[in-house]
Simulated assay, not measured.
Amino acid sequence: MNEKSLKVLEEYDLELISARRGRGSYICETSLGTKILADYNGSEKKAAFTSQLLQHMEEKGYQPVDKAVANKEGRLLCRDRDEQSYILKDWYEGRECDTKNSTDVRQAVSSLARLHGYMVWRPEEKTEYAGEDLRDIWRRHNRELKKIYEFIRKRKQKTGFERLFLKEYDRFAQQAKAAAWELEQSGYEELYQNSLKMGQLCHGNYNQHNVYFLGRRQIFTANFEKCGYDIQINDLYQFVRKIMEKQEWSPQTGDQMLDAYSRERPLADREVAYLKIRLSYPEKFWKVANQYYNCRKSCASWKSMEKLEKLTFQEEKRRIFLGFL
């Protein structure tokens, strides 16, 4: 995003006072208050769905929300000369959640549990924007891991990353197969269908970068663009996994997060079982491998090597943590 992007603000019924870069976007002080102008890669229809959801949540008492602002023509998206889409949303200044601060982490998880209580909505019988069946996702990921393994195995000149990948592949591939089998044997289908039937939605991208502390215990959750109907524990899984990776899979940290969530929204036994299955899948290993395969395979970056070394180093701690669940 560059300064030319600000030209799209002329399509809104407001006066721009000042603008500064922030988070790959522009944070704008306007005659209508603080707004954020950001790139948008989704459809106008999804933008409208998200806006209606946030309006519904606000009417139920959830605040603050980063609702989209309609332009003079009543549209939520604007396009520049290059046909890049932008969205203008309400914005609230705050500090980002500190992943090393246990109080921040607990409050973020408590806030997620409360958020899930508001994210129950069925505007129509047809369920659009439903999450993909996790069984299909894992089948695809497992095929991709095998494909990457075969590709690397046949290479004559191997990088340090490739040698380490081959060394660790069997261990993580077995974990992936075991998790997929456990998911098949669990009550996943019923849990998934019940979530859709009840109209439960996930934020879709709940991480420290989208959680802001505005003041004492007031939290602003941003960027609902990836929201959709699914098992809400998926949000908890994503946040827990990222925090645990940063905190060396500390059982104490994990216990604090689950306790904080349960205090606001008690977890059923099958939800805990589902969370454990999700955490048992080596998603980080798949992500690192997929990144390598889709970039320059001939020269894996030092960053990919660093990530692979870190996750192999943490593996024993991850296994111990899973034993506590």
Rank of each mutant, 00 (worst) to 15 (best):
L166F: 12
E309C: 13
S186P: 12
C202G: 01
G215P: 03
L32M: 14
C78Q: 14
E162N: 00
Y212Q: 02
V120Q: 15
R143T: 09
A179Y: 15
K197Y: 09
V272L: 15
G254A: 14
F49I: 13
H209A: 02
S43R: 03
R20E: 08
K60Q: 14
F49P: 08
H56R: 14
K4V: 07
S102C: 03
L201M: 04
Q185Y: 03
R263G: 13
N294A: 00
T50I: 15
E11Y: 12
N207F: 08
A222D: 07
F220G: 05
G117I: 02
L112R: 08
K284W: 02
A130F: 01
A180E: 15
D98S: 03
D80A: 02
L258G: 05
N290S: 13
C97I: 08
L322H: 14
H56K: 15
Y12Q: 01
K72L: 09
Y12W: 11
K276Q: 15
Q84C: 01
K317N: 08
K297H: 08
R21E: 15
Y149E: 14
K7N: 13
K287I: 05
E29D: 06
R318S: 01
L279M: 11
T253P: 04
Q208N: 14
Q232G: 10
Y237P: 04
E93Q: 06
P282T: 00
E15T: 15
F161S: 05
G74P: 07
